[in-house]
Design a protein around this nucleic acid. Sequence first.
DNA 1: CTGAAAGCGCTTACAG
DNA 2: CTGAAAGCGCTTACAG
Lengths: 347, 347
Amino acid sequence: MSIVARNKNSKPRVTVKDLARDLGMSVSTVSRAFHADAVIAKDTRDVVLNRAREIGYSPNPFARSLITKKTRIVGVVVADITNPFYPEVLTRLTTELRAIDMNVMLVAADQSGEVDQALRLLLNYQPDLAIILAATLSSEAAQECRKAGTPVIFFNRLSADDHAFGISCDNILGGRSIADYLVDTGHRRLAYIAALADASTNVARHRGFSERAVERGLAAPVVIEAGQFSYHAGYEAARKLRDLKEMPDGVFCANDILAIGFLDGVRRELGLGVPDDISIVGFDDIEMAHWPSHGLTTVQQPIEKMLEATVSLAKELGTNAGKEPVVQMIPPGSVIERATTRRRHHG
Amino acid sequence: MSIVARNKNSKPRVTVKDLARDLGMSVSTVSRAFHADAVIAKDTRDVVLNRAREIGYSPNPFARSLITKKTRIVGVVVADITNPFYPEVLTRLTTELRAIDMNVMLVAADQSGEVDQALRLLLNYQPDLAIILAATLSSEAAQECRKAGTPVIFFNRLSADDHAFGISCDNILGGRSIADYLVDTGHRRLAYIAALADASTNVARHRGFSERAVERGLAAPVVIEAGQFSYHAGYEAARKLRDLKEMPDGVFCANDILAIGFLDGVRRELGLGVPDDISIVGFDDIEMAHWPSHGLTTVQQPIEKMLEATVSLAKELGTNAGKEPVVQMIPPGSVIERATTRRRHHG
DNA sequence: CTGAAAGCGCTTACAG
DNA sequence: CTGAAAGCGCTTACAG
C-alpha cells in the first residue's frame, strides 16, 4: 500500500571501479590482482586483495566470462536419480569441482528424451564442460555441444558418439570377475538379471559375465529382462524365475538396487532361501549393500578413481579445450563377499 | 605437435548483432522481441523469433543479467544427501524451477559449517534466490544474503533467523497424529528415537508426539538419542533399547531412514518381532518405506505441496523481491498403516 | 609494472 | 513502434 515501491531492495554490489577509486589505482591494475598469471607487482596485488576482502569485493563472474569466454560452470545432467549410487556421485562431484573453482549447474531429466532437451538449456549458459550422469545423448545433441565448443563427459556410460569423453568402470572386467567368483564357488547354473537394455553398463556387464561363464565351461547364463535399474524391477524379475525350466543357482543382477529388489522378491514371492537355494551378486557396492538386512555380495565401483579422473579431466580441459576425446575405463574392485552368496558343493 | 594451436575450438556464438544485421533491423528491436513485456509490433517479434530459431540464436544470459541484475539462477545448498528423501526433492525442484525458466546452481555441504561457506560461494553468482535443503545457516551468513539482496528459503527446516522464508511440513501436527495413532491402536509405552538434536524437524516431531501422548493420558515417551537421520544411527539406537527399564511397545523414529535402520536393528540385534513385540513408525514415506521387506508405517510428507509452494514463492519473488519473509507450514498426510505396527489388546 | 581505452553481448531510457 | 547511444562490470591488448 505504500506509494513508493522499494525496488532497490539490495545495496548495489561493490565493483572494480569502487575498489579502484578506493585504492587510488586504475581499474586495470585492480583487475590484474585477481589473475594469477597477470603481470603485476606482488606488493600491489597484496594491497588490492586485502582491501578487496575488507570491503567485500569479488569480481562479477558474469562480466568476467563475457570477456574470457570461460564460465567456470560445469553443466551436470542427471537422469536416473532413483539409483542411490548417483546422489553420492553428484554431491561428491559438486564438492570436488568446487575445489577447482568450478560451479555445477544442475539439470534433471526424468525421461531419456529429456536429456537432449536438458542439455540444450544448459548450453545457453555456455558451460565449460558438460557431464552426463547415467544417460546418453542423441548424436544430434552431442553435435550441438561440439558446435558450442562444450566438451562432454559421459560418466558411467559409454557413448555411441566418439567425440565425447567417457569415464567408466570397466564393466566387462567386472562381469567377468563375477562369473569367475561364482564358478569358483561351485555355481553351475548362472543367470543374469538385465536392466535398461541400451545402457552400456548393462550391456557390458552382461557380456563380460556371459563370455567368462562360457570360457569356464558353463552354459551361457539365462537372461531375465528386468528392464530398469530399480528395486521394483528387481522384485518383479524374481517372479519370472518361476517360468524358467531350471532354477539358477547363481544370479548376477545388473546393479545393487536391482539386486536388492530381486533378493526381496526371491525371498518373499518365491519363498526361496538366499543364499541357501540361490546366490545373488550385485554391482556398485552402494551403502545399502552393507546393511545387515541385505548383506549383498557385490563388486565395488571405483567411484573415487572415477571422480578423480573426472576432475583432472575438467582441469585439463580448462587449459586445453581442444583435447582429443578419450574413454577411460577404470577397473572395478574385486568381489566383496557378503551374505547373499555361499559356496556350493556337488556330489 | 601442430605449430598453430587451435585455441578457438568453437565457432563464435551468434549474437544480437548478427541477428540484427541478418534481419536488417536494429539491435534494440531484436532484443525487444525476447521480452514479453517490451513494446514491439507483433509481426516484428514473430519474424525475429522465427529467424532466431533458424540460426540458433538465444540471448546470452550473462550479458543479460549484467544489466537486469536478475540472473534467473537459484542457488541450492544441499546437506544431508544420505537421506533418500532429498535426491527426489532436489531433482523435482530442479525440474519445476526449469519450468519457470530458473536454473539451479548446486552446492553440496558435507558438514554443517560448510553450509555457510557454500552459500557464500553461491552468492558470487548473485542468485535471485537461495534454497537451503535440510540445513540451517548461521545468522551471519543469513545476513550476508540479505545484504546481497538474495532471499533465502529454508526447505524442510525452520530457521532461527526470522528474515528468511521457510517451507516446511507441520511436524508438530505430524508428531501429534502419530501419538494419536499409537494410542488409538492400544499402545501404552511410547518411545521417540531422536535424530539430529538441533534440526527443527527433529525437535518439532518430538514435541508434537510427546505433548499429544501426555494429553492422551500416557507417560511422556522415553527418548533415545540416535543423533543422526541415518540408517546406521537407527540401527545403533536399537541396541540402546536394552538399557531401558521397560520395553516400549510403540516407537516413533524421527524419519523413515532412521526407522528402517531401527527396524533392522530391533530384529537382528535384539531378536524382537516387529510388529509383534514392538510397533515402529517413521516419517517421510520415502520409496523404501513401501518395499515389502520393510512395509514401514509412516506419515507422508507433503512434498508435492511443499514444492508447489516453493516454486510459486520463487515466482513471486521474481516480481516482488522485497516480499516480507513468511513461514509456510503444510500439514502432513495422515498415518499410512503398513506392516511395522499392529493393534495391541490389553487384558 | 601501470593506465587509458576498447569491447564482451546484451538492455533500456530517450528521441523520434 | 523503432533506432542510436549509453552503460552493466569486467579483461586485455596496447602504450608508456
